[in-house]
Every structure is written in C-alpha cells, then in structure tokens.
C-alpha cells in the first residue's frame, strides 16, 4: 500500500519540476519588477513552438533544439524588459500586470501567425527521443511493493535540481544575486547604493524566459501535442504556489510548487479507499486546502509579515 502511495506521488514528479521552475521564474520577476508576469506561460509556449519547429521540420538534434529554444526564451525576456518595462517604469503595479496580459495576447496571436494555423502541433520528435532513451520505467523494490517512475520524470528532476541549485547559489553568493536581493527589498535604495537595477531586471527577465522555455519543453516531453495555452494551468499553479510559499522569500514559492502537485496526487490516491470519483474533485479539494492555509498564514508558509507604516 505504501509503495502504491509512493508510486502515485512519483507520478506527479513531472508537474512538480515544471511548476517549481515556473514558480521560481514568476518570483524572480515579481521581486525585481513588482509585477505578476501573466505572460510566463505564453513565453514558454512560444519557446516550445520554436523547439518543436526545429525538431519537426528541420530535423535538428534535440539538445541543440532545446538550447536554441532556451536562447529564444532569453531573447524574449530581454526584449520585454528593454522595450516595454524599461520605458514603462512610471506605470503602477496593476498597469504592469495589464501590460503582461497584452503580451499574452501578442503571443496568442503571434504563435499561429509564425507557426501556421493548426494550433495544436505534434511534439512527437522530442517525445520519441525521450521514449527511445527512457522506454523502461525505473522500478524499485521497496516497502513491500514496486515503485515505478518514468525516466523522463527522473531526467527532468535532475535538470530541475541542478538548475535551481545553481540559481540559488548564484542568488546567495554572486554579485548578481546580491543585486537581485537588494533590488527586491527596495529598488530605489538599491539604485542609490550603486546597483544598476536595469541590468538586474534585464537579467531576471531573461532568466525567467529561459526557465519558462525549459519547463515548457520538459512538460511537452511528457505528452504529445502543444497548444498556445497549454502552459496556462502550470502558470496558475505557479502563482498559487507563490502565495502558498510566500513571495517574500525565493525558496518559499519553490516549496509551494512542490506541495501543490504532491497534494493533488495525495488527494487522488484516496480513490484507492473507495472514493472513486475523487479525481474529478481533486483540484477543487487542493485549492480549498490551500485557501485555508493562506487564510491562516496570510504571508504564506515561509513569508515574513511586513509591517505597514502610515
């Protein structure tokens, strides 16, 4: 029984990885540009389309394709920061959100324009590539049962852990990280202290773009088709993970991103106890639980409560 349970949890490994990357990207932008980036999902989808195009039509090796896709993500992030947000510094927080929503429209219109009208395109080469190398699941004998994990999920987990650890080390020890943390705590003061906040925000946007594309490719590798809005659920979960963990730290949202899919599969596991219809109500239950947690701790699980001055 316990092995079954672990298997179910491992089933959510892929969404854990993808949501964690997306949540980190969202937090980075939230802290440096004081906006929730609703375009995160569509930027990632666009990058994934580029990868799919390269692999499907031009037969480029997968690793190069993914690298190009991530580079495209970096460029899009840079472009958004340099062209739009640098010129719109006086826009207030809600206005910035609306701008990111406009960017979503640009991408939703742009994707069919660039990649043709059948909006759901196959993502088979990558899928096959993953499948060819990971045809067998990894199976462990433990706790009196078999725990099976797809190799795809394991590879994604490894990539996510490496990428996130590098980013956290950079945040803690590099000069860029110090700049990010200073900008996050107060942009104006950071500028006075001689930090070039423009470089910091530009770097944050490009990292967010790269992480988004990486997450999108990883997520698409688990299925077969992609569409402009296929990252929306992940993005919504990333936002919710952000407030669950608390936006005031960088690790909080990542932990939140681990908790939400795991909680979802835990609820789904209840189906084994006779609640057969529970998978329909899975997300409702998880979101309600999350809502309750946030009501108890309004600043998030790991957030610090900021005192308001009059």
């Amino acid at each position: 029984m316990f092995a079954n349970f672990l298997s179910t949890i491992c089933g959510s490994l892929l969404s854990v990885c993808v949501t964690a990357l997306a949540a980190f990207a969202v937090t980075l932008i939230f802290r440096t540009s004081t906006t929730t980036n609703f375009a995160q999902g569509s930027i990632s989808a666009f990058g994934c389309y580029v990868v799919a195009e390269l692999l499907n039509k031009h037969g480029i090796p997968v690793w190069i394709g993914v690298f190009v896709g991530v580079a495209v993500g970096v460029l899009i992030g840079l472009f958004i920061d340099l062209v739009i947000f640098r010129n719109g510094r006086s826009v207030n927080a809600v206005g910035k959100q609306i701008i990111t929503m406009g960017i979503v429209s640009l991408f939703f219109g742009g994707i069919p324009l660039v990649f043709g009208t059948p909006e759901r395109i196959p993502f088979e080469p990558f899928y096959n590539f993953v499948k060819a190398r990971t045809d067998a699941n990894v199976t462990l004998q433990a706790f009196g049962g078999r725990i099976s994990i797809t190799k795809h999920a394991l590879i994604c987990l490894a990539i996510t852990i490496v990428v996130l650890s590098v980013l956290f080390v950079l945040l803690k020890y590099s000069k860029w990280g110090l700049g990010v943390r200073a900008t996050a705590s107060n942009e104006f003061t950071a500028e006075l202290m001689g930090i070039d906040t423009r470089v910091i925000t530009a770097a944050s946007w490009s990292i967010a773009g790269a992480l988004g594309v990486l997450a999108a490719v990883m997520y698409a590798g688990g299925g077969t088709t992609i569409s402009p809005s296929y990252m929306t659920t992940i993005q919504v979960n990333a936002f919710l993970a952000g407030i669950l963990g608390g936006f005031s730290t960088f690790y909080g949202p990542v932990i939140g991103a681990v908790l939400i899919p795991v909680a979802a599969s835990c609820v789904g596991f209840l189906a084994n106890f006779g609640l057969y219809n529970i998978s329909r109500w899975q997300m409702v239950i998880v979101y309600v639980l999350m809502l309750i947690v946030i009501l108890i701790k309004p600043a998030g699980l790991f957030g610090k409560r900021t005192l308001k001055k009059v």
């Binding site: 609306i98 406009g102 640009l106 219109g109």
Partner: peptide
C-alpha cells in the same frame, strides 16, 4: 486581431 488588441493594450 489578437495581436492588435494586445499591442493596443500595451
């Protein structure tokens, strides 16, 4: 159309 709307918003 979607792009024009988005651009207008921005």
């Amino acid at each position: 159309i979607t792009m024009v709307t988005g651009l207008l918003i921005i």
